[in-house]
């Protein structure tokens, strides 16, 4: 192993806690609605400013070796888990502040738990990331136009209106209730998805052009909790004591 090419972190716990931004109480209006499903309220909430990085995740697997690349059980992650790492405690030089990817839902969830946090829900993530702004829609569409993963340091872009960065155009992010995206493989509807689409159709008529949102929901639908992907990372959130404000 060439020492020069490898970044090793022996220090634990990580000294600097992840920066958080406050998501004020907000209304989430789902793109796909099930019958009777209305807008919901999310927040107030503290949201990690950036996605979790390789370096932060390394501290986690050091403390919880059952989540290291060599020890994780197949129930909790598929064979691609931390595929880009060079070993249990090493990743390529220069990638310390890249968002960690190739992580499963189980690992992401446990990471957040270990920080006294949790994964955001779909509603929380969609609101906090300002996903429906046309600027972010455009950003995502441009991202799809470039194949493959091109990662970079987190935080290297202007923050959104809540102070978050990197929610769009860098990676996908796990959400706690990803499996609520019950879009079947056949996105044109069908017997198994009537519940999704009879509600969804009405909204679609209102807003048929949210291609980026369609894709995000299709992506979540395709996931299984043990899946990992080169483009899939996560960030955590924390409930505010006593409802905050």
């Amino acid at each position: 192993m060439k020492a020069a090419a490898v970044f090793l972190l022996f220090v634990f716990p990580l000294a600097v806690p992840a920066a958080e931004v406050k998501l004020p109480k907000s209304v989430y209006s789902p793109l796909f609605r099930d019958p009777g499903e209305a807008d919901s309220v999310v927040g107030p909430l503290l949201v990690d400013k950036t996605p979790v990085t390789n370096q932060e995740f390394l501290a986690f697997v050091t403390a919880f070796p059952q989540f290291s690349k060599s020890k994780i059980q197949p129930l909790f992650a598929d064979g691609g888990y931390l595929a880009h790492w060079l070993g249990d405690a090493a990743f390529a030089k220069g990638e310390a502040r890249f968002p960690v990817t190739h992580v499963s839902w189980f690992a992401a969830r446990r990471y957040c738990e270990s920080r006294g946090k949790r994964l955001p829900t779909i509603a929380e993530w969609e609101v906090a990331s300002d996903a429906r702004s046309s600027r972010n829609e455009a950003k995502i569409m441009a991202w799809y136009g470039r194949p493959g993963a091109r990662l970079r340091d987190v935080g290297a872009e202007p923050a959104n209106k809540f102070g978050l960065t990197d929610a769009h155009g860098l990676i996908w992010e796990w959400v706690d209730n990803f499996s609520e995206s019950i879009m079947s493989g056949d996105s044109r509807g069908g017997s198994s998805t009537e519940s999704l689409f009879c509600g969804g159709a009405a909204l679609k008529a209102k807003d048929p052009k949210m291609y980026a949102t369609f894709m995000r929901f299709a992506f979540r639908s395709s996931l299984n909790a043990r899946y990992t992907s080169v483009n899939l990372g996560f960030r955590c959130v924390r409930d505010m004591d006593g409802g905050g404000e």
């Binding site: 493989g185 056949d186 044109r188 639908s221 395709s222």
Partner: peptide, 15 residues
């Protein structure tokens, strides 16, 4: 068959 195979073949990246 359902969706002409669309449901049976819905696949996440890397799978």
């Amino acid at each position: 068959g359902q969706g002409g195979g669309a449901e049976g073949s819905f696949t996440a990246p890397g799978h």
